[in-house]
């Protein structure tokens, strides 16, 4: 093992890790938002609309992220969609992640006891208020573990952005490896960075879970 190369490549690796975190965080937030919108459409829109949305879910879930990214980045300009690497990567992550998040939200909504929705209808609450005040808060709570889980999966999907030259961690690691032949060291560092990131996310997730379910657990 030869660690001295990190004196030279440390800063670029750190920059790469920073970019990885940015891509992950923004991509996750956007994908989650789009997923939430999709789940609400699935629940409330007329049947023919949900059919289109379902088709979108099937196509995106049924194809590799790598391929989606290629199509978006290299195929996009053919239809006038010319994006820089980073925005393309973010858009790619958003599209790729959204159907999974949508499914998580959908099952979270289904976990809200129907009686609690009926109670709101019975006092004359408008459907939009029911969504905002009852369905969303309760649905989000039951979705939380799965949301955290998929967010963790997404951290590792960010490495695929390297193929469209987003300068994230894997991109920097590959550059360093190619220039120094220190493949093992470079990839070990990559693994450590990811492990640290995932560990942090899962801890934050668990804290959040304890906090927001505090009142929801029946004490016996």
């Amino acid at each position: 093992m030869e660690w001295s190369v990190f004196q030279q490549y440390g800063p670029s690796l750190l920059r790469g890790f920073g970019n990885t975190i940015i891509c992950w965080a923004l991509g996750t937030v956007f994908a989650m938002a789009l997923g939430l919108v999709i789940a609400l459409i699935q629940r409330y829109a007329p049947r023919w609309v949900t059919w289109f949305v379902q088709a979108y879910i099937e196509v995106i879930r049924g194809t590799p992220f790598l391929v989606q990214l290629f199509v978006l980045y290299y195929g996009g300009p053919l239809v006038g969609l010319r994006l820089d690497a980073l925005p393309a990567g973010l858009l790619g992550l958003t599209i790729y992640g959204s159907p999974y998040f949508a499914e998580i939200f959908r099952s979270g909504f289904r976990a809200v006891p129907h009686g609690q929705i009926e109670a709101a209808r019975a006092i004359g609450m408008a459907e939009t208020d029911i969504v905002r005040r009852i369905l969303l808060p309760l649905g989000l709570v039951s979705s939380l573990p799965a949301l955290v889980n998929f967010s963790i999966i997404l951290t590792k999907e960010t490495v695929i952005l390297s193929i469209i030259t987003v300068p994230e961690l894997l991109y920097q690691v590959q550059r360093m490896s190619a220039e120094t032949f220190r493949y093992v060291e470079a990839n070990l560092v990559l693994a450590l960075f990811f492990w640290g990131l995932v560990e942090t996310i899962s801890r934050v997730g668990r804290r959040l879970e304890t906090r927001i379910t505090k009142h929801l657990i029946e004490r016996t």
Partner: peptide
């Protein structure tokens, strides 16, 4: 419905 109250077997309070 505003002027019709309803009480359910399972209470259906909002737990949050």
């Amino acid at each position: 419905r505003r002027s019709i109250g309803m009480v359910f077997q399972q209470f259906n309070l909002w737990p949050h």
